[in-house]
Design a binder for these strands. Structure first.
Lengths: 129, 129
DNA sequence: TTTTTATTGACATCCATTCTCAATAAGCGT
DNA sequence: ACGCTTATTGAGAATGGATGTCAATAAAAA
């Protein structure tokens, strides 16, 4: 028997699509908790994993921060602000990285690119000091 | 007063240069512990951070695994094997990603590229099943 | 040598995430 | 519609990796 359509799974999926701001699992849990206080945190984590594995949402691993989940499953990179730690889409004008290579005996499955820097808000704030 | 040349700091630096296999902080600590059992784990972490900040070693953040430290400070990417979780240099023939862009009000400070896939060992093992 | 203060070591604490396990419920076959 | 199987749930404990606390120590400036 494959995966089941539980109400909790749908709630988690809806939350990721409602929160369009690269939410963490914790933020998704808090959002859900308001209208569905019985849904446990482990259930949120589990369903985020299931949804990501099936390609319905995207799981973005963020080193030294909580991972984020993205309703936008199209291939795109992210920027994390070193100051406020928020994650944004890297939609600035940049050539994409070249296609994933095949060489040296590795089987490359994926590539993740994460930019770090200052977001517009924090950059402005730092310039006003 | 700037930073001090403590014996512990030198021990940590030497360990990173001795372990040329992308060691984690834990592995570095264990290596050190054999010959210098009084050096604490917090000291190892602190000195790894100091050495990385001063550019003497490189700190590579690995999502969902322990971060690794690299004696090779030259700019290069890494591959993590999804099976054995080891980290390798991405020295396969690949065009590098284009230079870091400046656009959209972000100040981009760095970009990290991490490939995931199967290392030669694990690839071979999976083909022999 | 004296003084200053960066650094240490031991341990507690933190954070994000995963595990455990009995209880529940999805959805198949009948 | 009704069981039956088993994927899933909820609560909390447990984990792993890393950082914080703080009195004691030791670089190195004066």
């Amino acid at each position: 028997m494959a995966s089941r359509n539980t109400v909790q799974r749908q709630i988690v999926f809806d939350a990721v699509n409602a929160l369009r701001t690269h939410p963490t699992a914790e933020e998704i849990y808090e959002h859900i908790h308001r209208s569905a206080p019985t849904v446990g945190k482990a259930t949120v984590y589990r369903n985020l994993a299931v949804l990501a594995a099936s390609g319905r949402i995207r799981h973005v691993e963020v080193p030294n921060s909580a991972d984020i989940y993205d309703f936008n499953t199209a291939d795109h990179d992210h920027v994390q602000c070193v100051s406020c730690r928020r994650v944004f889409d890297a939609d600035f004008p940049a050539e994409p990285c070249p296609p994933i290579p095949a060489g040296s005996g590795f089987r490359i499955l994926s590539r993740s690119v994460l930019y770090t820097g200052l977001c517009p808000d924090c950059l402005k704030r730092s310039q006003n000091l």
